[in-house]
Design a protein around this nucleic acid. Structure first.
Lengths: 194, 194
DNA sequence: AGACTAAACGGACCGCGGTCCGTTTCTATT
DNA sequence: AATAGAAACGGACCGCGGTCCGTTTAGTCT
């Protein structure tokens, strides 16, 4: 029986492995800035065309690199223990969501930044849509009634924009704690409980 | 008496004029995407080095192009008639500020976008700092007491991020009116008056 | 007018992300 | 084992923003 999605050819699989290995290696050495597509190709012993065939773009590569940790993050706020996961009060979950997101951005810094420069802008990333839905759901569950719940949720997630967060942290010395506190304040204000 | 800032040399002035003219010309024809630095140089009959000497970067050029309208916008919310300018209730001014900003982004679209890709990111633009201060001032005046007024103000202005606004408008068909309504809702919620 | 200097000029050059297409390699079929 | 066709490969090539530095030019001083 032939698989519906054609199986990956062996050389393709081997090269993908090589590329991911080489990519993590380059990043470990010189950060995300050191990861150019030419260098990656050379470092992995592969043609440049192959790199783009695999990942489509630099942003796509970064997304692939972040895939595991992103999935883990999603799993935590969807199914994990409270206060992030189900079980806690919606507003508390919302607060926890932002705080965890801030921590995530801090941890993966440049990677997240580079992943954002996708072809269609940094809003086409599938994860962003998921966060919006999640935030929207929590707002509703928290009793927030709005004529534009999607836009309101989007406004909140805009606050967590990686570029903004990293800019504040790196150029203005703002700590994660202060960002978390500010997020918490914003959320509680919007949710209505003074 | 020699001026403190050395006067601009005549050839420099002439070239700046040529460049701005050529830039507006190119944009009129093919939008901001059609404005590449090479084409601009050629179209203006000037060397490429001269373009960069003048404007520093593509973003710098865009900023220069927007300078007049930006200044006009600033003048309106700083000194203009209510509800945008002084005289109206702070929250009303805040609402008006966002609405006008949305209209501005819609009008100048790609220009604003391109201006945002500055070397140090889109937060180093001087105007951004001014808006933050303005929003912060209005929040205070509106009776909002916060431990992190600057960050709270920043969260609000993040909602007005041009890339976000244009993405919603262009890719999701959201109207300016809905964005304005959402902004209004957000501001009134944050300012505490349900 | 001529000479001197600082400023402005111009375009070859660089590294980047991304594309294109002729060539190679894998795998299923007989 | 031979073959055919699809998939993957690789690297020359492109246009971009941005830099560098030898050359030209405008303004000033005598």
């Amino acid at each position: 029986m032939t698989p519906v999605t054609a199986a990956e050819r062996s050389d393709a699989a081997r090269n993908r492995e090589r590329l991911l290995l080489a990519a993590r290696d380059l990043i470990e050495q010189g950060g995300a800035v050191a990861l150019t597509m030419d260098r990656l190709a050379e470092h992995a012993g592969v043609g440049k065309g192959t790199v783009f065939r695999r990942f489509g773009s630099r942003a796509g590569l970064m997304l692939t690199l972040l895939n595991d940790s992103e999935a883990a993050f999603q799993a935590r706020f969807l199914f994990g223990p409270p206060p992030l996961g189900p079980g806690a009060a919606p507003v508390d979950r919302l607060v926890a969501f932002g705080i965890e997101r801030i921590a995530y951005v801090v941890e993966y810094g440049d990677l997240v930044l580079a992943a954002g420069n996708a072809s269609r802008g940094r809003f086409e990333v599938p994860a962003v849509a998921l966060w919006n839905q999640h935030v929207e759901m929590l707002l509703r569950a928290g009793g927030v009634v709005s004529r534009e719940p999607g836009l309101l949720a989007g406004s909140l997630t805009a606050t967590l924009d990686p570029e903004r967060l990293l800019h504040l942290i790196r150029e203005h010395g703002v700590t994660s704690d202060r960002l978390a506190a500010s997020w918490s304040e914003l959320v509680t204000r919007v949710a209505g409980s003074a």
